[in-house]
Design a binder for these strands. Structure first.
Length: 290
DNA sequence: AGTGTCGCCTGAATGC
DNA sequence: TGCATTCAGGCGACAC
């Protein structure tokens, strides 16, 4: 599922259940996800109290009062389901980890494709972990603006669409929001990242922030797997301008899609890219005619 | 160093 | 109905 908005929605659902609550037990129903579950995972968590939850890029972080913490990545199909105190829980297919809370609540990590992962971190040094050390700025934080993006992209020969998926450039942006943000900023996905102008970088950072914030407001995007911690779908997929809309008209377009073919789909670095060839031209020709 | 390709794994949708 | 193929929100190990 999960790009920044979906991960943030899951974190928000998780926070009231975890924070200030004691983990009384951890059930491991398999020994690995994409990577092995640390052998001392259970031991590090059990009887510790959660002091804070956080998010960095597409990772959820949970910090404990024993100085440790853990990071959780949902991969493509990871879900977290919360069972409130008293609610009956029966194990379902692909349930891999269960966290039992002192309140009686249970938190279940389910992941059909097992591309997700969990690992332990130290509360004080987690940012030095390899997953986070080279990670780019948080797009919704104050260290992300046009100038910073411009510097990050300098000299890059990859197309801008591929560069946006690189978590070292900006954290948390995935395939959906990269497509949507490029559409909103009217930048061609095939334009080489290093060729973007400062003005384009300004537009792009603003568009990334805007798209991510809107998606969070709508509860994220549900294509196939994504659910929040209550099992509900997100709504942002109804607001896509281009993503998964091949052949359809993009918002505000009055061109004849029988002639233009509508939204186009191409493959870049093995991933689908959706864009409007009229509004997102490699050179600024848009606006000359209407 | 930076970039593109492949593989990890399952399930849903599509094609024959 | 059934079987094979294709594709999917991510990421890291490789080869070049």
């Amino acid at each position: 599922m999960p790009e920044l908005p979906e991960v943030e929605i899951v974190r928000r659902g998780l926070d009231p259940v975890l924070t200030d609550n004691v983990i009384t037990g951890v059930d491991l129903w398999r020994s690995n996800l994409r990577t092995p579950i640390p052998k001392n995972f259970k031991k590090a968590l059990e009887s510790a109290k959660v002091v804070q939850t956080a998010r960095r890029g597409k990772y959820i972080l949970v910090f404990l009062d024993n100085g440790q913490g853990f990071a959780l990545h949902l991969g493509m199909s990871g879900r977290i389901m919360i069972h409130e105190p008293g609610a009956e829980y029966t194990r379902e297919k692909h349930d891999h980890i269960g966290f039992r809370m002192k309140s009686g609540a249970q938190v279940i990590f389910n992941d059909a494709r097992r591309f997700g992962m969990v690992f332990l971190v130290e509360r004080d040094t987690w940012e030095k972990e390899s997953a986070f050390a080279a990670m780019g700025p948080e797009p919704l934080g104050n260290k992300f603006n046009g100038e910073i993006l411009f510097k990050k992209l300098k000299g890059k020969k990859a197309p801008i669409k591929a560069a946006l998926l690189d978590q070292r450039v900006v954290a948390g942006v995935g395939n959906i929001y990269a497509c949507e943000a490029l559409f909103e900023s009217r930048i061609s996905p095939t334009k080489l990242a290093g060729k973007l102008t400062k003005d384009e970088c300004e537009r792009l950072t603003a568009a990334i922030r805007n798209v991510l914030n809107k998606a969070i407001k709508e509860g994220g995007s549900s294509l196939r797997d994504y659910r929040n911690t209550k099992g509900d779908l997100g709504y942002f997929q109804h607001h896509f301008s281009v993503y998964d809309r091949e052949g359809k008209q993009c918002p505000g377009c009055n061109c004849n899609i029988l002639k233009t073919g509508g939204v186009r789909r191409i493959v870049q670095a093995g991933r689908s890219t959706f864009y409007c060839s009229k509004k997102q031209q490699p050179e600024q020709k848009q606006g000359k005619r209407k």
